Simulated scan of single mutants.
Amino acid sequence: MKDLHIQSNQFELPQQFETLNKLCQCFKDQEFFVIGATARDMLSIALGIDLSTRTTRDLDISIAVESWDSFMKVQELLINSGFEKDSIRKQRFYYKYFELDVVPFGKLSEDGAKIFWPPEASPEMTVRGFESVLKECVNVKVDDADIEFKIPTTAGLFVTKLDAWIDRGLEKDNDMDDMMYLVDNFYLPNCTEPVYTEVFEAVEDSDMFISGAYMLAMDASLLLSDEEKAYYKDKIETELTKQEASLLIQKSMKSSKKDYDTVYRAWELFVKRLVK
């Protein structure tokens, strides 16, 4: 899926559409990417599946910049275009009281993995995989208006959510909820030949949840560098060795409402296919 056409009335909140419209006007000469729950909902619309029950009340975007000085210019552009800067959260802005989080990535990151907001080097945020993920995006056009932007593919969004969960898994369940939603809904809309044959051979009982995890790994393996795949492999396998004590497994079971064996097998096959 390379292109997605949606209608403005398909947005959960009018403020989402209004804020995106303003961002498109603001960033006419600079690409930005919608991430987070809004991207999740747009992918759901594209795949024709039910929207997640976890609703969103904000908008998250990511933008590639050369340096923190470049990001300060982005910030000035937003403020001059009518966005209000949050006095505490460095990534947060408001447009008519609607929350907007802007996450920079690119050459300002440490080895392409983390960003440290100046001047205190805080907060620290993971942007690992962003450059790889966002090379392969879905172009979104709203109505017939001049509103066009990009979102990650389903596997790309899964990777950004996995990164976020590794960073803050103890703090909240939102990222795991979204990952499990993607796993649970990915198989049927995407299972065509020759994909079906490989999945059928790998997943002995043809469980759709496990098959969804396997297929996400197939797509993610095409996006990520060998170094990035090795990083996720290490993180996931470390959790799998903990078995029932694994926070990854426990949170996955809670979010997916699946049993231990199903969740364990899904992650086991995910990492196995990711580095194949």
Rank of each mutant, 00 (worst) to 15 (best):
G129T: 07
M179N: 02
L13C: 14
Y231A: 02
V140G: 04
T55R: 14
K28F: 00
T238E: 14
M1H: 07
W117R: 05
G156E: 05
W68I: 14
D143Q: 14
T197N: 08
D111I: 03
L108I: 13
N80D: 15
K229F: 12
K85I: 05
L20W: 01
D58S: 07
D29M: 06
V34A: 04
T241I: 15
I63Y: 01
Q243M: 15
E201I: 10
F149E: 05
N139D: 05
D3S: 10
Y232A: 04
K2M: 10
V263A: 08
P194C: 06
K22I: 12
D163Y: 00
V183C: 09
R273T: 09
E84F: 02
K272M: 11
S132G: 11
V263F: 06
K229Y: 05
F270S: 13
A164D: 01
V133H: 02
N174Y: 03
I115W: 02
E227M: 00
D261V: 10
T197W: 01
D184C: 03
S221H: 08
K141H: 13
L51I: 09
R92L: 09
E99L: 14
D226S: 06
V102Q: 10
F71N: 11
M1K: 02
L77Q: 09
D3Q: 10
D111A: 11
R128I: 15
E244I: 11
G212P: 08
L188N: 02
I79H: 01
M72S: 07
R92V: 11
G48K: 06
S109E: 07
K150G: 04
S52Y: 00
I88G: 03
V127F: 03
Y181Q: 00
D111K: 14
S206E: 04
P118A: 15
S255W: 01
Y94K: 13
E148D: 03
K235C: 12
T126F: 10
L134N: 03
E66C: 08
R54K: 10
